[in-house]
Design a protein around this nucleic acid. Structure first.
Lengths: 170, 170
DNA sequence: TAAGATTGACCAATCAATCTTC
DNA sequence: GAAGATTGATTGGTCAATCTTA
């Protein structure tokens, strides 16, 4: 169909505003949101093969990285960037599946310490290699090494500038 | 095969795994997740001043960018990257507040077309400038221009590689 | 009084099932 | 039968209130 068939359609008068809706700052932010959504889809697909949600995996990983494979509930919540009640629910799930367990915290009877179980560590050990493969294939391989490096450097500086940690308490 | 110089030193039996937990590919991905969380916090704070959730704003913006300030439900859902039922609920909210309205779709009586109302456009017009200011201050100003440009270029290529659109139907 | 953790009520999304129209 | 949209049940999180211990 030739374009002439639309040529006579009366123009709407809000075209000046349209520029604001397409401001590059808006579209740049959109890029990060879309990249994030795509990345989450890739990661979730891997985790799902091990019966894990993304937040379950994050929790297991935080525990695995901590001294003694353990963290107090409050510290875990801070690392996850979640509320303490949300963390309570995640740990409930993990404990129900035997991937983590609560034990009393020495010297503070108000607190619980969450410990990664052997089963939890095994689950993580099964998941991580698949995850690394997926990351390699989906995000690293498609980008020229130097561009990938620039992306990571930019993300690091952005993360530091945004200080998500500082906003958690707000 | 060169033998490790640590081969005879007794070690905790998970020390080999520790390296895997700190694999740079994992921490790089973590950077994007943290930057995203921080960005969402910044954006949400602005939207909240206008009584909008992030997904409300996204919806209004998609409508504003579309010809006739309108989209069919299915197309809107695709653009938002949400399920059609999730989109139904968002539009229910927006319609309840008078920011959008449903009208019958010409030539297909199964379908609804969502239209941005004047009120919705006004809300958007109030929100966007504040949003742009917040983005400028929180993400653009803190980064050297060339690093910001590299970040955006990397994000664009990553987004294209991940093709979030292609994964929505999966 | 405040800190750590949990619970109940709620909110925003998902999936599976359904209804209408193509 | 398939596509567009909605609904009911469920999931995964939040906030406000509560309980216990410091």
């Amino acid at each position: 169909m030739p374009k002439s068939c639309h040529a006579d359609i009366p123009r709407v008068n809000y075209s000046a505003a349209m520029d604001a809706w397409d401001d590059p700052r808006l579209t740049d932010v959109g890029l990060l949101l879309e990249a994030h959504a795509g990345l989450i889809a890739v990661l979730s697909r891997v985790h799902a093969r091990h019966g894990l949600a993304g937040s379950d995996f994050d929790t297991l990983l935080r525990l695995a990285r901590s001294p003694g494979r353990a963290l107090r509930m409050t510290d875990l919540a801070a690392q996850l960037g979640l509320s303490t009640s949300g963390t309570t629910r995640i740990v409930d799930r993990l404990e129900g599946r035997g991937l983590a367990r609560r034990k009393a915290t020495a010297a503070d009877r108000r607190s619980w310490t969450v410990v990664l179980t052997a089963t939890g560590e095994r689950t993580l050990r099964d998941d991580v290699p698949e995850l690394l493969t997926a990351i390699q294939r989906a995000v690293i391989d498609p980008l020229p090494p130097e561009r990938y490096a620039a992306l990571v450097a930019g993300l690091r500086q952005l993360r530091d500038a945004l200080r998500p940690d500082a906003t958690i308490g707000s």
